[in-house]
Nucleic acid binder design. Sequence first.
DNA 1: CTCTGGCTAATTGTTGACAATTGGCCTTCT
DNA 2: AGAAGGCCAATTGTCAACAATTAGCCAGAG
Lengths: 242, 242
Amino acid sequence: MSVDSPRTLSDQLFEKLQHAIVRGDLAAGMRLSEAELASRYGVSRGPLREAIHRLESRKLVVRTPHSGTKVVSLGQNELLDIYQIREVLEGLACRLAATKMSTSQIDQLYRLLESHQQQSDLQEGIAYFQQEGDLDFHYRIVTGSGNQRLIDTLCGELYHQIRMYRYQASTGGNRPVHAFNEHQHIVDALADGDGEMAELLMRRHIRTSRLRLEKTWNNSRSNPVSAVNKNNKTEERQETVL
Amino acid sequence: MSVDSPRTLSDQLFEKLQHAIVRGDLAAGMRLSEAELASRYGVSRGPLREAIHRLESRKLVVRTPHSGTKVVSLGQNELLDIYQIREVLEGLACRLAATKMSTSQIDQLYRLLESHQQQSDLQEGIAYFQQEGDLDFHYRIVTGSGNQRLIDTLCGELYHQIRMYRYQASTGGNRPVHAFNEHQHIVDALADGDGEMAELLMRRHIRTSRLRLEKTWNNSRSNPVSAVNKNNKTEERQETVL
DNA sequence: CTCTGGCTAATTGTTGACAATTGGCCTTCT
DNA sequence: AGAAGGCCAATTGTCAACAATTAGCCAGAG
């Protein structure tokens, strides 16, 4: 029952490039040469350009006509914008999931939390898995909302950019225990079918994360060594298509 | 100061096709032949395919590999999903706009409402302009939020689909007076800088619209002549890219 | 009469060559 | 010496031909 491998080269390239960008193999702000990428992946420039155009719609690359395309480099303000959106969107997802998720799906959530718990017990500092596990948790709830458009927006666009940022910033100093308890309360609310409470808890959970990011950045203001991309110099503001 | 005309053919095609789809010149569910479109717009298939891939990312067309691409035809459930998202997203936009919009911007909003008022006074049944004016109102508030990502998501994706639906359904029976008052109250809250109130009012405003849509559809259940796309037979469910 | 199987035509996917635009470099004039 | 202007290389945008896959159709067997 494994998923049909994406058929067209353009599709495969899109996923490969997306993955490479998220993981940082194609560094943020890096210029993408069509010729080089085409030869690297062993394809022609046609499918490659199609993939690039899709990446542009997903806001993973920025393209300037006749000049070139660069991997997007999101600054702090952009990430805060994303977190604001996440807050209301995942809140909505929780409210919907509370009435739409089956008991077995919720059981899976509990089991997921258990495995996170054990990981945290065994080893305190595994930021990497913890981070991916965190998004996995959110991913499942969003999927459980049943709102396909919501799923696409969050899992198809926003999450990739958050993961991209986490890879490049390697945000240590995550708050595993704290977040774990919040996750637990959210699932409890879901199990109770209490949509309002689940929404409230999720929004507070994400808002806390956002505030923690802001706080970290404010501290690193006096500690310029770890100051990352304050005002995002490399970005050209792209205008909105009317 | 007219805007630089979009440079590449791919960009121009993207906008033209988007416009054609929204206006219904390319009917919902219609199959798009690459050869025909290419000759119609006087370009080669290369740029056309790039534009199509972007339209696919924006969810305006659905593509099945090696088979063809069709204009998306959104059913009632999809539209309800969109309205749910709109509710929380525009609520957020209002909360932000309340602190970020300048007084001159808010004055512009008041003037916009006045013009709507006059249009409503002069002629009761102009659904077309009223609808476009409605989105114009929402558009300005969202723009005033200052959250670029939010602006892109709403104005670049969701609004086009809503306009598309309105064109094809020609939803008469709009509630101009009622909506007008709600708009007025929202702007009042913005003028007061009361973000919470603005958010609340906007969410209620959109929720009311959504409920009105559901009600209309339930009525037309017994009036099958005007029943539109109940369960959206033509749509293939597209799977989410992981 | 229906169902299966292969074949054919039409459409999409891919490629490599060609054209157009950009940005840097060098020359030249003030 | 500095700036302005034009030239050249490199990269992107576009095109038309080629290859591969799909879907419909027709024939034939059960």
